[in-house]
């Protein structure tokens, strides 16, 4: 190969490390939880990261300030990295030869298991930040609990992701506070964002048979068990932001079982275009 400059960059090293970590898991037998339910759980974790990462990455170059461009790209990068780990493990446990890319690029919308919240359109920057905050506050509790998972592979991924997500939450909470308690307009926009997103938060804490099986096997907490901590975080941040906590009303659900909003189909049409148009090509 002809000479290209060969200065090392931290980014590339980190990415290479990530790729290694992705393929590097030993074949530990999955816990008694039952493989299909374990795969289902891992897809829920991975799909949340993938779809939110996609949404966040849409801001690249279009955000309100250069610092935000950088922070959002970093956040998207973290989420895509976490998605590679969760979906990589999902494919491994499933044992049908599908890797993280096959799961990301070759499933149709009905096979996606992400929460509806993360697939909602970005809206204005306030909606994006509020969605991030509401999800981060849930995500961090989930990852903290997963650090003591009976499955060491799950615990390992959670430990890595928790550090990143702690930072995501610190950032999103801080911005919600500052914008809630900023100008009249920023306050109004943040309150409107909250109203729009609130009906999509309940789904995070609904338990179903998959969750129950994971909890019984000690793999993952029941989502409902995370709600008290989430409530506390959200109430304290909104209070400091001078934003009113919405009344607990109707909540949408379906994402965890593959019944999505109309938005997901368009995300996949874009995301999967090359893999679908050129089947089998290597990129």
């Amino acid at each position: 190969m002809p000479s290209l400059p060969d200065m090392t960059t931290p980014n590339l090293d980190a990415l290479a490390g990530q790729a290694l970590a992705q393929g590097g898991h030993a074949q530990v037998p999955a816990p008694d939880a039952g493989q299909p339910q374990f795969v289902e759980f891992l897809q829920r974790m991975g799909d949340n990261c993938l779809i939110l990462g996609h949404r966040v990455s849409e801001w690249c170059g279009h955000s309100p300030a250069l610092e935000e461009d950088i922070a959002l790209a970093n956040q998207a990068l973290d989420l895509i990295g976490q998605c590679q780990l969760w979906l990589g493990l999902a494919g491994e446990v499933e044992g049908r030869g599908r890797d993280a890319d096959a799961l990301a690029y070759l499933r149709d919308a009905g096979a996606f298991r992400n929460l509806l919240l993360v697939e909602l359109p970005n809206g204005d920057f306030g909606v994006t930040l509020m969605r991030q905050f509401l999800f981060d506050a849930f995500h961090i509790e989930m990852l903290r609990a997963l650090r003591t998972s009976a499955d060491p592979r799950v615990a390992e991924i959670a430990a890595k992701a928790e550090k990143e997500v702690a930072y995501h939450l610190e950032r999103s909470a801080d911005l919600v506070i500052r914008l809630g308690d900023g100008t009249d307009e920023s306050h109004r926009r943040m309150q409107a964002a909250l109203a729009k997103l609130w009906p999509y938060t309940g789904e995070m804490f609904l338990d179903d048979a998959v969750d129950q099986a994971m909890a019984d096997a000690g793999v993952a907490p029941l989502p409902s068990a995370l709600k008290a901590a989430w409530d506390r975080t959200v109430a304290s941040v909104l209070d400091e932001a001078t934003l009113a906590l919405p009344a607990d009303g109707w909540h949408h659900k379906g994402g965890k079982n593959g019944i999505h909003t109309e938005h997901l189909g368009y995300i996949l049409a874009q995301m999967q275009f090359l893999q679908r148009a050129y089947p089998g090509a290597k990129w």
């Binding site: 980014n11 990415l15 990530q18 790729a19 993938l50 996609h54 990455s57 849409e58 690249c60 790209a73 998207a76 990068l77 895509i80 990295g81 998605c83 590679q84 979906l87 993280a100 890319d101 990301a104 690029y105 995300i267 874009q270 995301m271 275009f273 090359l274 893999q275 090509a281 990129w283």
Partner: peptide, 15 residues
């Protein structure tokens, strides 16, 4: 970025 053909390519392009 949103159309990158693999997750690794997406991560590299984002970076």
């Amino acid at each position: 970025i949103t159309r990158a053909p693999t997750l690794e390519r997406k991560a590299i392009l984002l970076a």
